[in-house]
């Protein structure tokens, strides 16, 4: 008996010894920060109250949501972030689908194209920003090419679009890699069956390719949403802490402002947690969609199916 428990003890000890760094890291750099931030978001810990901070309850959150004098950009920053997601996520998916489909047709040079598209992914982010900043300047490459004179980055109506474009440009390589390998997993016999049935290239794409990579599309949707909500670093690099351009003021950009400029750590913590909640909700929705719908939605769908005749899809 004793020897058995001794062995068991030794096994457990060894196991934990191996994951000790992980546990330590987890406690110090995951758990503790989250707890501290949580607590602080209920205080008024900021530059003015570094030592004499007090517990203020939900005041920080309420101020964020309601006080449009103190936080004029709060809701508009959420709208901007939302708008950015609308610009990037569908475009990313469609572009990845189309480019991957083109690369998947029997052409030479697939490896070459994949490499070229992937170059931005291995270019230092700041360097890419420097490059684009100069390209988008009034006398930069883009304007030279089109003979126009638009200051893209400082123009309210173009700025956000341009950031979306940069993000799509930079992400294409990675997206294509993922999408292409998903496409290659589709059983070629299905294309052959469709070929014999008389399907043309477009039809094969719509009826076989797209449905076949649906899981990947879903993956892009979810990751696109999650990283879309966190957009802000690009703006930070280009404009610094503050910007005159209102249309690029995203939620996270506001977070940076609050952190660096006003040093209002309490509010920043509150904003961080709010972001956390949003992302958590998205993740939960994703989980649900992948693993089954809640019962009441399923009943609605069944009722509709039984009522109708065979629905034809052309």
């Amino acid at each position: 008996m004793k020897a058995q428990t001794k062995q068991k003890l030794k096994r457990n000890a060894t196991g934990y010894a191996f994951i000790l760094p992980l546990i330590l890291y987890f406690v110090v750099f995951q758990l503790a920060p989250m707890l501290i931030a949580l607590v602080i978001s209920f205080t008024n810990y900021s530059l003015e109250h570094l030592t004499d901070y007090t517990f203020v309850g939900f005041e920080n959150f309420i101020e964020l949501f309601t006080n449009s004098v103190k936080y004029p950009m709060f809701w508009s920053s959420l709208k901007t972030t939302f708008f950015y997601i609308l610009l990037t996520v569908p475009a990313n998916i469609i572009l990845a689908l189309v480019v991957s489909a083109l690369l998947n047709s029997k052409i030479k040079g697939e490896k070459f194209f994949k490499t070229v598209f992937y170059i931005p992914s291995v270019t230092v982010g700041v360097a890419i920003m420097v490059m684009w900043q100069q390209m988008l300047a009034p006398d930069g490459l883009i304007n030279q090419l089109f003979g126009t004179n638009v200051d893209f980055l400082n123009n309210e109506s173009t700025a956000l679009v341009v950031f979306a474009f940069m993000s799509i440009w930079g992400g294409l390589g990675y997206n294509v890699l993922i999408m292409l390998s998903a496409m290659k997993n589709i059983d070629p016999a299905m294309y052959e069956a469709a070929e014999i049935d008389g399907a043309g290239a477009v039809q094969k794409f719509l009826y076989i390719t797209v449905p076949g990579v649906m899981p990947t599309v879903f993956f892009f949707l979810v990751t696109g949403l999650i990283s879309g909500f966190q957009v802000g670093e690009q703006m930070l690099i280009i404009y610094g802490d503050t910007t005159m351009v209102q249309s690029v003021y995203t939620y996270v950009y506001g977070l940076y402002y609050t952190m660096r400029r006003s040093c209002d750590y309490a509010t920043a913590s509150a904003m961080s947690y709010f972001l956390f909640v949003i992302i958590l909700i998205i993740t939960l929705i994703q989980f649900r969609v992948q693993n089954g719908r809640p019962k009441f939605i399923q009943k609605l769908i069944d009722r509709r199916k039984k009522g109708g005749e065979l629905v034809e899809k052309v």
């Binding site: 110090v28 750099f29 995951q30 503790a32 920060p33 989250m34 501290i36 931030a37 602080i40 966190q230 802000g232 996270v252 977070l255 952190m259 750590y265 920043a268 913590s269 904003m271 961080s272 947690y273 972001l275 956390f276 992302i279």
Partner: peptide, 10 residues
Amino acid sequence: TVMLVPNYLI
């Protein structure tokens, strides 16, 4: 991004 502020604080 969510971990940014918490990590700074720690």
